[in-house]
Design a protein around this nucleic acid. Structure first.
Lengths: 347, 347
DNA sequence: ATTCTCACCGCAAACGTTTGCGGTAACATT
DNA sequence: AATGTTACCGCAAACGTTTGCGGTGAGAAT
């Protein structure tokens, strides 16, 4: 008596614990597993009658195919990986958010990896992606990544790789980048429009390609403008350094009409701190303009005018490129996302 | 001749494309699959000699077990899920980062899901987690989540759930929360220490438990302090609303010695905009103090004094709780993370 | 009555692991 | 010489799916 009750209980528990499988549905309906499998995907070989019954029961039991079994059989994971150097960055968040949104629609899930800007960790992540047979990889590489071989290996394994934001030099791969030149152009044009003669341009690490691109274009546009614009450029490797530099430079600019240009959010944060510290206010005492992902500029009053580099737009572009790769397009392409000027009131 | 060459090529490609498996290693070494499997996990039944050879070859071929096959067999995915209402939030980033870091050490990977604060999507995510048999779930629930049933279902399936930050009322589950009361206490104490008689307290949506907790404690501590502190509390549901309210209230406070308390980063951002707009400066014109995750306060000069609610610390706590659950601890616990005061210069 | 179509369905192998169980030598114990 | 022990290793089933192929019965065509 006790034993029977016990067994019943155990069965109950097992029933509860286990997800329904094809086999269970098949047994309940006295058909074969293959029939159930086919019915669930509307295979023409299945009669309408049988199909209906199977689908009804599957619905009732909340059947969902076991993704691991499916993958083992078909090698398709319906899972994307996004690899970024860091998560503390508004740009990547909006990128991730945008990919995630699209992926949901197509029934994919998204795994997010953080390389901590460490090439070693990046390698490990790539390996794990290979073994997990992800459907595709979106990656912003670390600043020290120089070996393309792991990425080519992905290709051999049939896993498409879309580089975004931080992309390698290597030509024939899919890259989706921010329009560095275009953003710099927009900022420079706004400065010219406001007719400001003196510019303090604060840029990032001169070794980064993004710095070179933005600086070069920014300088060129200002120079091309007939009137003599005086541009002084400095480099800061961190927010704190940007603050320091700005702080030490501000005094000598105070007697002229001038503006500060910050090439990134990080630098903007530092520069704004120095500006506040000196008790200055835009746009009365100076102009401020930046290239930004669009969060920091909104924290100040007046809001900072900036050329936006939109992560979510980049995400959409990257995703559609990815889908094309999955559909079989083997051809590599570099897409550059144009920027747009968001006018605050700081210049 | 051509055919032979062709075949060779095809074989090459196939060799390249396919990850090494137990079977391949076994064939190369003329041993059985079981032996390889056991050797790779140092099973005592395997002779040192055989073990060495197998491990060497496995190393050479960069063998890694196919996670899908392993899961199918063992039902262990070594994969955690983190579910958050939104990604645009510094607190969640640092939480995610911290979980991810720990997980890497233990050989787990992390999937991040975003519920968009929508209970429907949250449901779907949970279902997908169940079917993927994730090893565990960290979740900050949406504000509309009221049904505990899906979570209990997880338990039945043997998937531990750790609630963090936004947790349900329900008693017997694992919750890791920010010490709302403690943070409010720290802020209030600092205000008392600075001997400021008038306080404008800006709080969030009065229906949120977090608001109630912070408000209640904050008010109580101020009241308990013998000297008569005047506290006016207002509620804002967004950054913009906080700005509006602050803007309209500031004029009437200008003639007194006062401070603004912001219960969150969102509100702080709005309030600071109003303060800048009025041309006021802390700490000369007014005091500013907040409860924050620690990013926004650093953008201003002087930096805002705040009681920190650390996502990364919460992550560490949540992770160790998770590991204990996986190890078999069935007992539920609520952990509250104490806050700490970070002194800027705004009060 | 024989053959041909078709619509419908099941068999069985395969994906790559893990693991209980059983087997075989070699050597030590009676 | 028979038995026991020990160290090593392989067989085979199972996890849940997908899919090529072959089979059955019913009706149509010859």
């Amino acid at each position: 008596m006790f034993a029977v009750e016990n067994l019943y209980l155990i069965n109950q528990v097992i029933r509860m614990r286990q997800n329904p499988t094809l086999k269970k549905i098949a047994e309940r309906l006295n058909v074969s597993i293959s029939t159930v499998s086919r019915a669930l995907k509307d295979h023409p070989d299945i009669s309408p009658e049988t199909g209906r019954k199977i689908k009804e029961l599957a619905e009732l039991l909340e059947y969902d195919p076991n993704p691991y079994a499916v993958n083992l059989r078909t090698h398709s994971s319906r899972e994307f990986a996004i690899v970024v150097p860091s998560l503390s960055n508004f740009f990547y968040h909006s990128f991730i958010g945008s990919i995630e949104e699209e992926a949901r629609i197509y029934g994919y899930s998204v795994v997010i990896y953080r390389s901590s800007n460490d090439a070693k960790i990046e390698q490990e992540i790539l390996k794990s992606c290979r073994h997990k047979r992800v459907s595709g990889i979106f990656i912003a590489i670390t600043s020290e990544t120089d070996d393309m071989e792991p990425f080519l290996k992905m290709d051999v394994h049939g896993i498409p790789v879309i580089f975004f934001d931080k992309v390698p030099q290597y030509e024939s791969c899919n890259k989706i980048c921010v329009g560095d030149e275009h953003a710099a152009l927009l900022a420079a044009e706004e400065i010219i429009r406001k007719d400001i003669p003196n510019i303090l341009g604060i840029f990032g690490d001169p070794n980064m390609s993004i710095t070179r691109a933005r600086l070069q274009k920014f300088a060129t546009v200002l120079q091309q403008n007939g009137s003599a614009v005086h541009l002084k450029t400095v480099h800061a490797r961190s927010s704190a350094e940007a603050e320091q530099i700005t702080l030490s430079l501000l005094p000598e600019w105070m007697d002229k009409k001038f503006a500060v240009f910050c090439m990134s959010d990080e630098i903007l944060a530092g520069a704004m701190k120095a500006i506040q510290r000196k008790g200055l206010r835009a746009p009365a005492d100076l102009g401020v303009i930046a290239i930004s992902d669009g969060m920091i500029p909104l924290l100040f009053y007046p809001e900072i005018t900036y050329a936006e580099t939109s992560g979510s737009k980049l995400g959409k572009l990257a995703f559609s490129r990815m889908m094309r790769c999955i559909a079989g397009s083997s051809f590599a392409q570099t897409i550059i996302d144009e920027s747009k000027l968001v006018v605050g009131g700081s210049i």
